[in-house]
Design a protein around this nucleic acid. Structure first.
Length: 642
RNA sequence: GCCCACGUAGCUCAGUCGGUAGAGCGCAUCCUUGGUAAGGAUGAGGUCACCGGUUCAAAUCCGGUCGUGGGCUCCA
């Protein structure tokens, strides 16, 4: 038998017989301690598990506990163990679909007539523990697809058969753990002893292959870690996220509500939420004015013909609400603001000298969302976009995109977001506009991103039919990602509405249109802000900046006086002059996450001062009302980055 | 829209086997006037989401509708 050479990436090498498995190679090359941390190996670009035999000279990079790849393998293997446990408990009548690893965990889809319930979870988890303890090996076999089909056919595993048929490959790989054999590409853990901490989290319905015409399967979600502490940490993080849930905080802090009798997905802003929203809006308008945008206001409904011209009736109809009859003419609620801005553009002839035109609007739109998609402020049926449309010449496109990116990042940063994932989506299969225009626009988007020094990923073919786009997903305090900003080039509407400007050559040209929303929708953005800040808003957009707390009724009048002074001084102020103990009022102000508590007792009344208590419990030296006003103004200016 | 779970006071929740409803917080009144995270007493407050059915009797069982949650799908 011939020998082959195995080399460890940046390390040892050895000569071993052909057919040596990856696992054996790892044992040869790595110390015992290192080996225990190794779950697979990377060869070239693919990850291979221990059972794979080696046939030629290779360089191995161990995949070790702690890496993303290792988690992937762990969770995938845990999914198999769960499937094995489910099979052992509920028998072969349960059909299995797919069970991949996902971000932070895994799932497995099953077809079963009765629903899984929490008691089942206990049973399944107990069974899994039992299986894991046996240190069962995962064994890999490669077999002919036809053999695999007849095998799964015999077991009546129709999903597996369908998968193999669709693979259109001569051979497939099977993985066996215990008595459970699954069609699977792998790789898997060497054995189940690596699975040290796992938890089943929830069960949900899911269509086979995500298609609602297919069977509804039951999906069990779970997560898995290499040690118990990490699992505990993760579960704590889930708890933390629950505490920050904007729906919970929205209720507790009286920011917004949704009423069944008013309608699902329709937000009522309570005074404090409205204040928060006003502050976001004012900042947004100021910043846009500073960046040479002009503000528009447009109506909520328009004649149906407008939506015919814009193409929304053809392409967006399923998201639009039914028309209403007004004096025999059909009108529809707007799902987008663009046709209205175009109406302003087309109000008169435009010269090339006017371009670029930048018009922005906090425009409230209504879109039909399926009932099951609605979610707090994050997915609603009526929402306000921080919309803008830029009409420009082709030679201005790149600069305009660059300017938008600058404003975009500035606004995000002001609200405390400085981490994002950026995607550039290119031409899809079905599209309108010329190839040259698409190339120009795509190139402009790319150059602008590069000029701004931003890393981005290209999403090939994911652009909208009317033009390429940039999407920015922001990351919040907990590292969760939210789609907010979008910048889209549009060749379609200028064509449909015959937009034009008179060029230097005295002939008509078509402008390019850019749609962009930076916060996306105010509802969603504020929802994300609530979770990002856990309801503890910075002073500059805290709905209530300070609350006056008196110590006894004797300071009642002095408190009223201070209250008036501060309110006139522009402080968002409240007073709590109830007949309660100071500590009681402090607790409540703390729970309400109010930045400053202004404590007023006999001392303050005599000296004409207030005592400022911070959220962290510290007190500032006594100051006068006007000193406090100045202090707040300074901090607000700083917070807004002015 | 689909699958599963849920809907009881303003909020958070309890309510057994079907016998007409309870707590804490909040609110009101009174006592207390207390200096940095909950002082005490009394009281008001419910069409048990809505509609229908079964039953002598429904918060409880059944059906439908609406809403909420976890997902699928879609997306700002």
């Amino acid at each position: 038998m011939t020998d082959i050479s195995i080399t460890l990436y940046k390390g040892e090498s050895a000569s071993v017989p052909v057919g040596t498995t990856v696992g054996e190679a790892i044992s040869t090359l790595l110390s015992n301690k290192q080996r225990k941390r190794t779950v697979a190996a990377r060869i070239n670009d693919s990850i291979t598990d221990f059972t794979t035999p080696l046939t030629e000279d290779v360089t191995l990079t161990p995949v070790q506990i702690g890496s993303d790849e290792a988690f992937d393998i762990l969770r995938h293997s845990t999914a198999h163990i769960m499937a094995l446990a489910v099979r052992e408990i509920f028998g072969p009548d349960i059909k299995i679909a797919i069970g991949p690893s996902i971000e932070n965990g895994f799932y497995y889809d099953f077809l079963r007539t009765e629903p899984f319930n929490p008691e089942d979870f206990d049973k399944i988890e107990t069974k899994m523990e039992e299986l894991v303890r046996q240190a069962l090996p995962f064994t890999r076999t490669e077999i002919q697809s036809s053999a695999a089909i007849s095998r799964f056919d015999a077991e009546d595993e129709k999903y597996k058969v369908e998968l193999i048929r669709d693979l259109e490959s001569d051979t497939v790989t099977l993985y066996q753990v215990g008595d459970f054999t699954d069609l699977c590409r792998g790789p898997h853990l060497p054995n189940t002893s690596f699975i040290r901490a796992f938890k089943l989290l929830r069960v949900a319905g899911a269509y086979w292959r995500g298609d609602e015409n297919n069977d509804v399967l039951q999906r069990i979600y779970g997560t898995s870690f290499f040690d118990r502490k990490e699992l505990k940490k993760y579960l704590n993080a889930l708890e933390e996220a629950k505490k920050r849930d904007h729906r919970k905080l929205g209720k507790e802090l009286e920011l917004f509500t949704v009423k069944e009798d008013i309608g699902a997905g329709l937000i009522l802003w309570q005074p404090k939420g409205a204040q928060l929203r006003r502050l976001v809006e004012d900042y947004w308008k100021d910043e846009h004015y500073r960046h040479d945008y002009d503000l528009l206001y447009t109506p909520h409904i328009a004649r149906q013909d407008l939506w015919k011209t814009s193409g929304h009736l053809d392409f967006y109809n399923e998201n639009m609400y039914a028309p209403m009859d007004i004096d025999g003419i059909a009108y529809q609620l707007k799902p987008m603001n663009c046709p209205f801005h175009i109406g302003v553009y087309n109000n008169r002839k435009r010269s090339y000298r006017e371009l670029p035109i930048r018009w922005c609007e906090l425009g409230t739109v209504y879109r039909y969302e399926r009932a099951g998609a609605l979610h707090g402020l994050l997915r609603v049926r009526g929402f306000t976009q921080d919309d803008a449309h830029i009409f420009c010449r082709p030679d201005q496109l790149e600069d305009e995109i660059f300017n938008i990116l600058e404003l975009n990042l500035l606004i995000l940063k002001t609200f405390g977001f400085d981490q994002y994932d950026i995607y550039l989506s290119t031409r899809p299969e079905k599209y309108v506009g010329s190839d040259e225009n698409w190339d120009l626009a795509t190139e402009s988007l790319k150059l602008a991103l590069e000029k701004k020094g931003l890393n981005f990923e290209i999403d090939p073919g994911e652009g909208v039919f009317y033009g390429p786009k940039i999407d920015i997903k922001i990351k919040d305090q907990l590292g969760r990602s939210w789609q907010c900003s979008t910048i889209q080039v549009d060749f379609n509407l200028p064509e449909r509405f015959h937009l034009s400007y008179i060029g230097k050559d005295n002939s008509e040209h078509q402008p390019i249109m850019i749609h962009r929303a930076l916060m996306g929708s105010l509802e969603r953005f504020i929802g994300v802000l609530i979770e990002h800040y856990a309801g503890v808003f910075p002073l500059w957009f805290a709905p209530v900046q300070a609350r006056i707390l008196n110590i006894t009724d004797d300071q009642f009048e002095y408190c009223e006086k201070i209250f008036k002074l501060l309110r006139q001084g522009g402080i968002r102020i409240e007073k709590d002059l109830r007949n309660e103990k100071l500590s009681y009022k402090i607790r409540e102000a703390q729970v309400n996450k109010i930045p400053y508590m202004l404590i007023i007792g006999e001392k303050e009344k005599e000296n004409g001062t207030i005592t400022v208590r911070l959220r962290d419990g510290k007190n500032l030296p006594p100051m006068t009302a006007s000193e406090f006003i100045d202090k707040v103004a300074d901090e607000v200016r700083e917070g807004r980055g002015i």
